[in-house]
């Protein structure tokens, strides 16, 4: 069996709800001694992370939070240009607000080696100096190659290394699929 659906639409939606709640809770006061943040800055990593960030933003705005949204494309910051070449489908980075002094939530769909997150942090620092960066992911599939872990994880699943794990979105349903690569 090559393709397995790991999480159906309902499980994904519940995980997104949980992520939004967690982010909203942190706004109320991240640590007892830290002042509350007035606005939530969500930065999605193109492309899957941007979709997750859109979904989280929608949920946060329904509960009355104000959200700053941005997207990052990390293609030019990858460490594997020599082996895979430039990504033919580069999406523009779009950060309509100044990141300096902000508490940024970096959002991605699937957390794997951690290299994407490292690159995304490099991109963010090239735009300014955020006060903090936190990471929220829809799914953690294990297999980290860098000391990176998410502050907020929607779903957990240990996937074997010869598989890809993708968030598949249609206009109605979202699900997470595991595919074996030859």
């Amino acid at each position: 069996m090559n393709n397995v659906i790991l999480f159906e639409h309902q499980a994904v939606a519940a995980a997104l709800d949980q992520m939004a709640n967690h982010i909203a809770d942190r706004v109320a006061g991240p640590e007892p001694d830290q002042p509350a943040e007035t606005e939530i800055c969500l930065v999605g990593i193109q492309r899957g992370g941007a979709r997750v960030a859109d979904a989280v933003q929608q949920r946060l705005e329904q509960t009355g939070s104000s959200v700053c949204r941005g997207n990052l494309d990390i293609s030019f910051y990858r460490d594997d240009l020599d082996t895979i070449g430039p990504n033919p489908e580069v999406r523009p980075s779009d950060l309509p607000f100044d990141v300096s002094g902000k508490h940024i939530w970096l959002i991605d769909d699937v957390l794997y080696t951690g290299r994407t997150i490292r690159a995304a942090m490099d991109v963010l620092f090239d735009y300014g100096r955020p006060d903090s960066i936190r990471l929220a992911v829809l799914l953690d599939r294990g297999g980290r190659q860098l000391p990176i872990c998410a502050n907020n994880t929607g779903l957990l699943h240990a996937a074997p290394p010869d598989c890809t794990v993708d968030l598949i979105t249609t206009s109605e349903t979202w699900h997470i699929e595991q595919r074996q690569v030859k």
């Binding site: 030019f76 033919p88 580069v90 999406r91 490099d122 090239d126 735009y127």
Partner: peptide
């Protein structure tokens, strides 16, 4: 078209305050 797509995404890097990426 591939080079045009790639070029379009570089326009942004040239406009931001820190005009440097580690690509090369």
């Amino acid at each position: 078209e591939y080079l045009l797509n790639l070029g379009e995404s570089f326009i942004d890097i040239n406009r931001r305050p820190l005009k440097k990426a580690p690509t090369l």
